[in-house]
Design a protein around this nucleic acid. Structure first.
Lengths: 150, 150
DNA sequence: TTAAATAGTTGTAATATCTAATTATTAGCA
DNA sequence: TGCTAATAATTAGATATTACAACTATTTAA
């Protein structure tokens, strides 16, 4: 089978946005505890990197600091995150996920995983292994640390 | 190597949003001819399905008809698409991409493919083959017709 | 010890997106 | 046939999201 970079790129460009669309719909369609994808990514990142600064989160998620400041405002207003001053550098803030935030993160994560696992359930094991291998390769290429991303 | 559905799903959920973020930044960062991802997907879909109705495009891209109506307004205002009445059913509208729209679509597509191909260039052929196989599997699972999606 | 750099927030504006209501047209059926 | 229901699209109105520029507070370093 011929595998040239251009063709692989084209396939990625066709497939990735549609998977993303499924993930987005899944996350938004749960009454009251819905999250946008950026909100989800912020919660997941901060949950794994407790005490992250605003800049770190903004950088990870790909938003500007002002946008992230407002996004965090919203999550704090919903009681999902907390912001406190960094005692070592009082310009910085330390972000954390509240218990309630963790609960919602967990629920949304599980729901989304079920959605995806359900889709993947139609595939036989070797296809799923191909997906795992591919994602592993893509993970390195897009510089995503293990068990971190989202 | 153990490959269970749950684990594959988790990996997808970690990796896909980050690839998407790269695609989004790439598409937006070209002065004057920038497109949002939904705009890009609309142009790509209509270009391959000339005369699509508003509902068909909205359905494909995952937006409501009112949102799509406004999105299309914007693309028409930029001279990238045209809207005309369907003679067979005058409730419907037939959407097409203008020459200018095709040109911009082409440029943005090529730019994004270069971005992706560049990333993929760091991988050896068997990794790229794994990616192709995985995308092929995902394509069927998410019901993405060949050479269509975006 | 003050100028420059850094972290974050606020002001303002442009998009993007939704639900509900409205208009126009077609389809179904008694 | 003629009326009702269904469908396709748009408009109205509201809310979210996001950006850039300007500002405040704090730290670094010359």
């Amino acid at each position: 089978m011929t595998v040239d970079r251009e063709e692989s790129a084209r396939t990625l460009l066709e497939v990735v946005p549609i998977i993303m669309q499924g993930i987005r719909l899944e996350m938004r369609n749960r009454r009251l505890l819905d999250l946008t994808v950026p909100q989800f990514r912020v919660l997941a990142f901060v949950n794994r990197n407790k005490g992250s600064s605003l800049w770190e989160v903004a950088n990870h998620v790909g938003l500007t600091p002002p946008s992230m400041s407002r996004l965090v405002d919203g999550l704090i207003a919903r009681g999902l995150m907390a912001r406190k001053d960094d005692p070592d550098d009082r310009r910085r803030v330390q972000l954390t996920v509240t218990g309630r935030g963790q609960a919602i993160l967990e629920t949304v994560t599980q729901g989304t995983l079920s959605y995806l696992a359900d889709k993947l359930g139609d595939l036989d094991a070797d296809k799923r292994e191909a997906i795992d291998n591919a994602m592993e390769a893509l993970r390195t290429v897009f510089a995503i640390p293990h068990g971190d991303g989202r």
